[in-house]
């Protein structure tokens, strides 16, 4: 949904550019944009997509916002206007606070490592050779596995005592660990799965980004006296900034929109230690019969996601300047 919002924003910018171009060509800059043929044409092109966006994205968003001010107690007949009481209830809910905290730890602990690892993979696999292509496909494979399936697979990897992980750790003399059952560890186990699943995906973006950097930039840097680290610092990283910003946002959005593994592996437990905001919303909406709380939490997460999206568009637009 957020990605759609990004698209719309970009599309609207394009409308503006298109209209500007048309006016410039027709030398009718003084005409009001509303009557401008270019504008009308551009909006007409945009209309079908916009219609569906409004119908399926913006209308529900407004509806959810509206609903967050009402409470229909489970089993009650009437919906009552409660102003901000749902928000008060939400912030008073320890489970929600836990879910937010977990989500923050989960975000920091998955976004940064998976981007760094994805970038590392990309760095070492940019040049293609048959061997490297093979490794690349292997690293990309986790991305192709649906999260539900990956979670089911990792249940067996994490199986205490006889799972793959413990099996090999035992050979190193490390005692069996309850990867998903220990409330101190479970969230980190989910994070490792997430990193495993996403690093390869981000690698792909970075490979594309790296391949877009001309070889001569590195050659020039070599001659100017740059070593490996300096090339990375002064050439690769700055030139890759638009890609990194994009991947960063994708990763952040990922963190808030994917909880399949929570459902499959832990149900948010033990002791709420793996509860994430989206799963909290799901639980409240469908299991706890507290739709109002779910709605309110949705409003807040939509706001966070919107903020991330707009931040991302800004950085992406800044990134475009590099291409000349």
């Amino acid at each position: 949904m957020m990605v759609d919002a990004c698209h719309l924003w970009l599309a609207m910018r394009k409308v503006k550019y298109m209209a500007d171009n048309v006016t410039a060509r027709g030398k009718k800059r003084l005409l009001k944009p509303f009557y401008n043929a270019g504008y009308i044409k551009a909006w007409l092109y945009l209309a079908p997509a916009l219609l569906f966006l409004i119908l399926f994205t913006y209308y529900p968003m407004v509806q959810v916002l509206w609903d967050s001010f009402f409470l229909k107690e489970y089993g009650a007949e009437k919906k009552l206007f409660v102003a901000f009481d749902n928000y008060r209830r939400l912030f008073a809910d320890e489970d929600f606070i836990t879910a937010v905290k977990n989500n923050l730890i989960y975000a920091i602990g998955t976004v940064i490592p998976s981007i760094v690892i994805g970038f590392g993979f990309a760095l070492s696999l940019t040049q293609s050779s048959r061997f490297k292509n093979c490794i690349r496909s292997l690293l990309f494979f986790p991305t192709l596995v649906p999260l539900v399936a990956a979670a089911a697979l990792w249940i067996f990897i994490y199986f205490p005592g006889i799972g793959l992980l413990d099996y090999y750790l035992a050979k190193l003399g490390i005692q069996s660990t309850d990867w998903l059952g220990d409330p101190d560890i479970a969230l980190y186990s989910l994070m490792i799965l997430t990193i495993w699943k996403n690093a390869g995906f981000y690698m792909l973006f970075f490979i594309a980004g790296l391949q877009g950097i001309g070889e001569e930039y590195y050659e020039a840097a070599s001659l100017e006296g740059a070593g490996w680290w300096q090339k990375l610092r002064y050439v690769t990283l700055p030139l890759l900034a638009p890609t990194s910003a994009f991947v960063f946002v994708i990763a952040l959005i990922h963190v808030f929109t994917h909880v399949d593994h929570v459902i499959v592996m832990t149900l948010g437990g033990p002791m709420g230690s793996t509860n994430l905001v989206l799963y909290y919303i799901y639980q409240n909406a469908h299991e706890f019969n507290d739709l109002a709380k779910a709605t309110t939490a949705t409003v807040l997460s939509v706001m966070v996601l919107l903020a991330i999206s707009f931040f991302s568009i800004r950085t992406m637009e800044r990134g475009i300047h590099y291409e000349s």
Binding site: P160, L180, A186
Partner: peptide, 14 residues
């Protein structure tokens, strides 16, 4: 009993 949150699948497997 183990001091861990064993789920039913783990229990039957064990």
């Amino acid at each position: 009993m183990p001091a861990s949150i064993t789920n039913s699948k783990q229990v039957s497997t064990d």
